[in-house]
Amino acid sequence: MKFSYYPGCTLKTKAKELDLYGRKSLEKLGVDFEEVKEWQCCGAVYPVSRDEVATKLSAVRTLASAKQENAKLLTLCSACHHVLKRVNDDMKNDDNIRLKANNYLGLDEPYQGETEVVHYLELLRDYVGFDKIKEAVVNPLKGQKIAAYYGCLLLRPSETLKFDNPENPSIIEEFIKAIGATPVKYPFSNECCGAYVSATNKEIAVKKSTKVTDSAVANGAEKIVTACPLCMYNLTENGNKKVPVYYFTELLAEALGVKE
């Protein structure tokens, strides 16, 4: 099975090493992947308004490019994943958006939502399997108490994303177990960190991120792991600063022994 790998803008620039950890881990796990050719930004936010078509086009281009490669589209960042999966759903189910987007793009063959969008974590769960990962781990993160942070974009709306149980998710906890650490349960793993509002209203982001980090610490977390660069930024910069926040690929690479 082939995957078209879509690192996304943040992980390609600001957080290069997180992308690198992701790639090295994929290689170690024997996943067949190739970076999407000439990929463009997904748009960062899913355009909710039903009349927005132009803002969805870059996502459609990426989806169509994966279709051409006959591959599943593998995403690393929660926001990219969210946007690509929802736009894909529109291309599959919204006649108006599909027609207009295809009219704009003029592809050789109209794109109709054929590509399957897979998040890196879904790949680990559904294609590699957490048992396999457990076997591949060389440096188990034994004794580490890690809290999973899902945020919003991976889970909601569950009707479209179909990622995990939206109110009681478990995939990152399973991941934490697979790399040898102990997951810490706390009630705000799917509560918003403050998202993009932190750029214009830091106060809100501080409130939200502090609530999350405080709860994680109160429940005994020594680390927080997340799958979204924006969540990572907010929890780190606007949280209580008492708990380090990691991107999941870093912990994965460390456990697999491919982190330099």
Binding site: C9, T10, T200, Y233
Partner: peptide
């Protein structure tokens, strides 16, 4: 520190 994702979405 600020990620592109934040700037673009904002």
């Amino acid at each position: 520190t600020i990620p592109q994702q934040l700037l673009v979405s904002m």
